[in-house]
């Protein structure tokens, strides 16, 4: 039930921000479309703790700010190596270990790896993530495990 209410609020916010018309007719049409989507989502059986991670919402913002900082640093390094040319890069393919317990945590970790330029999560099997990196330093930074630790904190 909590997840249904959360989905309803998200859809309502999305609809209100996108429409910008607040007459009674438009609002009732919006309500009708939201109810239709809720019905379809329930039929598809996708409304659960994985699609609506309400329990993570208090810890996610601080992680996002940390990720933003990492994102800017990674962007600077990749842009530097684009202009330095092909001889300065050292592409590497390795596997790193993900120590998250739930699937949501693993997905957050793999998506964070892909979001930072310079590293891409190629495959995720069990708790091993195959990572392709532009530079060897990126792999070393991943293996120190700070991002892994922070995602674990978000998860608990």
């Amino acid at each position: 039930m909590r997840h249904t209410i959360n989905l309803f609020l998200m859809l309502a916010a999305f609809w209100l921000l996108n429409s910008g018309h607040y007459s009674v007719l438009m609002l009732s049409l919006g309500l009708g479309s939201i109810v239709l989507i809720l019905f379809i989502a329930h039929r598809m059986d996708v409304v659960d703790h994985e699609s609506q991670p309400v329990h993570l919402s208090t810890k996610l913002p601080s992680y996002f700010f940390w990720l933003l900082k990492e994102l800017i640093l990674a962007n600077i390094s990749v842009v530097k190596h684009i202009w330095l040319g092909n001889s300065s890069i050292s592409p590497t393919l390795t596997t790193v270990k993900a120590s998250q317990k739930t699937d949501v945590g693993k997905v957050i970790y793999a998506n964070s790896i892909t979001l930072t330029p310079g590293t891409i999560a190629v495959d995720l099997v069990g708790d091993k993530i195959m990572v392709h990196a532009l530079l060897e330093e990126n792999i070393q930074a991943l293996e120190t495990g700070e991002m892994n630790r922070r995602v674990c904190q978000v998860e608990n």
Partner: peptide, 28 residues
């Protein structure tokens, strides 16, 4: 940043490294 990413897409040697260049234009 977008122009750098575009140059990187043309310049990098193989598909996986080009994905990193696209990542720059897509995020920051």
């Amino acid at each position: 940043l977008c122009v750098s990413g575009g140059v990187g897409v043309l310049r990098f040697p193989d598909f996986y490294t080009r994905m990193h260049a696209v990542g720059v234009t897509d995020t920051l």
